[in-house]
Amino acid sequence: MTKEYNTLKNVIELPHKYAAGPAWTRFYDGLKQEKIYGSRCQKCKKVFVPARSYCPACQVSADEWIEVSQEGKVISWALSISHEFFGMPVSPPFITALIRLDDTDCDFLHFIGGIDLSDAKKVKDLIKPGLKVRAVWNEEKKGHMMDIRHFVPVSG
């Protein structure tokens, strides 16, 4: 859209290099092997996923690494039928969701797929809180969150 008054267009574009550090490096290496790692806090014993170097609450080291289940329950979800978002790794339609993987103590943010997404009503009838889902992996692994393609409902 061109504005009817004088403006100056300016794109600010800068490069960044983010240090992954040991925890993300190891977590992504796990993804490459189709494993999801969490880590357990030494103090409160909670398991956090993705694995991290410290417990967010206790701020002590969470260095006991655990391969967590690739199944879990839906806590919350939202469906985009046609709306595009900047920075979204997938095109609509998609479902973004919070998933509590089995035996972990926080919710994992990812996508739900493998179902018909064209009708919001149908999706709502299918995806109830607590619905069981399981990770589906992409063939090619890049050491990236999207090595997991999405989570699909576990039938039966």
Binding site: H16, Y18, A20, W24, P50, I75, S76, W77, A78, F85, F86, G87, M88, P89, V90, T96, A97, L98, L109, H110, F111, P129, H144, M145, M146
Partner: peptide
């Protein structure tokens, strides 16, 4: 963060929709 939530496309509207559903 660049490592996790950015890679799955989080923004304020996505977060709000998840909160609304709950």
């Amino acid at each position: 963060d660049p490592f996790y939530q950015r890679q799955v496309g989080l923004n304020e509207t996505v977060a709000a929709a998840l909160q609304m559903r709950e």
